[in-house]
Nucleic acid binder design. Structure first.
Lengths: 253, 253
DNA sequence: AAAGTTACTTGATCCAGAGCAAAGCAATCT
DNA sequence: AGATTGCTTTGCTCTGGATCAAGTAACTTT
């Protein structure tokens, strides 16, 4: 392509094999040759900006998306407009897997901060998967992982109280940042309090109060979007807390 | 094996092609030849009884299970013992898809009423999938459907109140019974009130009270496990109920 | 058939978190 | 600089559903 003044976005167009996310993304566990084949069908997007829709519920399903940089939220925009946030997607994570079944997007996806994604035309991905068994296997694994993750969220929403939900959310982010080579204890939230609350089944006010309380208890420091986890161990304890024999489910004596 | 006194369960050993569930199950959309190939790897189980475990969380993952007759519940048994019910599985529905990722079962599965299942060794299913593209496609669809379903449950738990949850649950059962050729308005529950409550993120008492209230309002008749839906339309209205302009989510004016 | 066991219902009370209202604070616009 | 806009925080009140506590009805065991 042209060499003149294209400043930086050819950098984004690295092949999968050079991508720092391979170990978290679809190519995981593929041979270099297989990765090259996959690479041929992957398209890299121009950067997308906060508020852009990646796709909307009901759109025809063409591509699976993988976040390359930035953050995307997926959500069910409800009949009326009472959206339910379904997930926040960090680099290396896939979006749109729920659309395979019907051929139409089951949820919407919106950009939270300037984001680049890889687009993988699904039909071509399927063709390739039946040629490359390890790619098929990897696809099954990724779909299965998504199911497992959603099931964990069901437990979160079905059984955990507000405190446990927020702790779990922060620890999830922490771990995912760490695996991407960022600090597990010092990061910026790309989503609003409103979106966090929506995702966790809580009111904005509750989220805000919990941040304040966690800060007062020395668990973390908050300043708007900037979070510093000061005591990850204690945050983990919150999750495994039977609060000393509390009766969460009636047990047969 | 021994031929002497095996009374009736050779009847159960019908091939997939003769199974009444094909249209709901994995063979959906496959050619008769492909179904025969699939049939070769499917194993039919002896009947399982109430309380039996199909598998337990942490068990090595070998097979995907499909319910043939009966009902199975899947659940996360939690560290302590505070289980979270993840789903109730009717004939034609698959169980264990969340285990593909790690190779270990992510949840447990228990029989609710006498049940026969088909076992599909996953490794062989994968092999077959890369030979039969439409089988691979069907597998992707089924996994995707599971994700979509879990996402719907997230919305249920995150946004709906007790009344809406129970209505949604009953309508889901109703529809699934109907698709299996049973009455959509007259059926027996194979799970306890406790399990329903657990699944819906509600206390047993709340479920019980709601049944009573729905009955008082003429929506249904309950007698223990026997449910008759008297007004399915009104049950559906409960789901789409903004209760006349109620503010469910703050909207920007 | 009596006694025990388990599941379900119903009533009474309580509380975590929702909802409302009003500031506070950062960022952008004029 | 001041005003507008959009988050976020904080205080106060209210409520849906949890929890506690009996009581009842079906199923099991002997």
């Amino acid at each position: 392509m042209s060499e003149h003044k294209v400043i930086s976005f050819d950098n984004i167009k690295v092949a999968c094999r050079n991508c720092s996310l391979t170990s978290l993304c679809l190519p995981m566990g593929l041979t270099p040759e297989d990765v090259d084949q996959l690479d041929n069908i992957v398209r890299r997007s121009r950067p997308l900006h906060r508020g852009d829709h990646l796709f909307r519920q009901g759109d025809v399903f063409q591509c699976i998306y993988v976040v390359k940089t930035g953050t995307v939220k997926s959500f069910d925009p409800g009949e009326d407009g009472s959206e339910q946030v379904l997930g926040f997607h960090l680099p290396g994570e896939m979006i749109g897997l729920d659309a395979i079944e019907t051929g139409y997007h089951h949820c919407s996806a919106k950009i939270l901060e300037t984001t680049a994604v890889c687009e993988i035309p699904f039909t071509r991905l399927e063709e390739l998967s039946s040629i490359i068994p390890s790619l098929q296997h990897q696809m099954f694994r990724l779909l299965s992982r998504e199911i497992g993750h959603d099931e964990d969220m069901l437990t979160l929403l079905g059984k955990r109280n507000a405190e446990e939900r927020l702790a779990s959310f922060l620890l999830s982010l922490s771990g995912r940042f760490q695996r991407r080579g960022f600090s597990p204890s010092d990061f910026y939230l790309s989503m609003s309090r409103h979106e966090i609350g929506n995702y966790l089944g809580l009111a904005v006010e509750t989220v805000s109060r919990l941040f304040t309380r966690f800060q007062d208890e020395g668990l973390l420091k908050v300043e708007r979007k900037h979070i510093q986890l000061m005591d990850i161990e204690r945050l983990k304890q919150i999750l495994h807390n039977d609060q000393g024999g509390g009766v969460r489910e009636r047990q047969i004596p």
